[in-house]
Computed example of a mutant assay.
Amino acid sequence: MSTPYALPHPGLNARQVETVERLFAATEALLDEMPYDELTIRLIAARAGLSPATAYTYFSSKDHLFATLYWRLVATAEGPELAGDPRERLRQVVRWIAALVGASPALATAANKSLLGGDPAVAELRLAIGRHFVGLFAEALGEDARPGLVRTLEYVLTGAMVEAGAGIVAFDDLAEELVAAVDIVTG
Results as ranks from 00 to 15, higher is better:
Ala53Ser: 15
Asn112Leu: 08
Asp37Ser: 13
Pro52Cys: 00
Ser60His: 06
Glu88Ile: 09
Ala67Cys: 09
Ala46Ser: 14
Val122Thr: 06
Ile97Glu: 13
Pro120Arg: 01
Glu143Ser: 14
Glu143Phe: 07
Leu90His: 09
Ser104Arg: 15
Glu139Val: 07
Arg87Met: 10
Leu141Trp: 00
Arg89Tyr: 01
Leu39Ala: 06
Ala128Gly: 06
Ile41Pro: 02
Gly102Asp: 04
Leu116Arg: 15
Arg87Leu: 11
Leu115Gln: 04
Val74His: 08
Ala128Met: 09
Glu124Gln: 13
Arg95Phe: 05
Asn112Phe: 12
Leu69Lys: 10
Ala140Val: 08
Thr57Gly: 10
His132Pro: 01
Ala29Gly: 14
Glu38Gly: 10
Ala99Met: 09
Leu90Val: 10
Pro120Lys: 05
Ala123Arg: 14
Pro105Trp: 03
Arg91Lys: 12
Pro105Thr: 09
His132Asp: 02
Glu38Lys: 13
Val101Gly: 02
Tyr70Val: 00
Thr40Val: 05
Arg131Met: 11
Leu116Asp: 05
Val94Pro: 07
Phe59Asn: 01
Glu78Arg: 15
His132Arg: 15
Val74Gly: 07
Ser114Pro: 01
Leu31Ser: 05
Leu136Pro: 00
Leu127Glu: 15
Ala108Cys: 05
Ala103Met: 07
Arg72Asn: 07
Ala48Ile: 07
Asn112Val: 09
Tyr36Ala: 02
Ala48Met: 01
Glu143Lys: 12
Lys62Gly: 06
Trp71Ser: 06
Ile44Trp: 03
Val74Ala: 12
Asn112Thr: 15
Gly79Thr: 11
Ala45Val: 01
Ile44Met: 03
Leu107Lys: 01
Gly84Ser: 05
Ala48Gly: 05
Val74Pro: 10
Tyr70Gln: 11
Leu39Trp: 03
Asp32Lys: 13
Arg72Val: 00
Glu139Tyr: 08
Gly49Asp: 10
Gly102Ser: 07
Tyr56Thr: 05
Thr109Lys: 06
Leu141Asp: 00
Leu69Val: 13
Ala140Ser: 10
Thr76Ile: 01
Arg47Thr: 07
Val74Met: 11
Arg131Val: 09
Thr68Tyr: 00
Gln92Ser: 12
Gly102Thr: 06
Leu115Asp: 00
Phe66Trp: 12
Ala111Pro: 01
Leu141Phe: 07
Glu78Cys: 04
Val94Glu: 03
Ala121Phe: 05
Leu116Met: 13
Ala46Gly: 11
Gly135Tyr: 08
Gly118Ala: 14
Leu50Val: 10
Ile44Leu: 10
Glu139Gln: 14
Ala121Gly: 12
Pro105Val: 07
Ala77Tyr: 09
Ala99Asp: 15
Thr54Asn: 10
Ala110Thr: 04
Arg126Ser: 09
Arg47Glu: 14
Glu33Leu: 12
Ala29Gln: 14
Ser61Ala: 07
Asp119Lys: 02
Ala29Leu: 14
Ala75Gln: 05
Ser60Tyr: 03
Thr40Gln: 01
Asp37Met: 08
Val134Met: 14
Ala121Pro: 08
Lys62Val: 10
Thr54Leu: 11
Phe66His: 15
Arg95Trp: 02
Ser60Ala: 13
Arg126Asp: 10
Val122Phe: 02
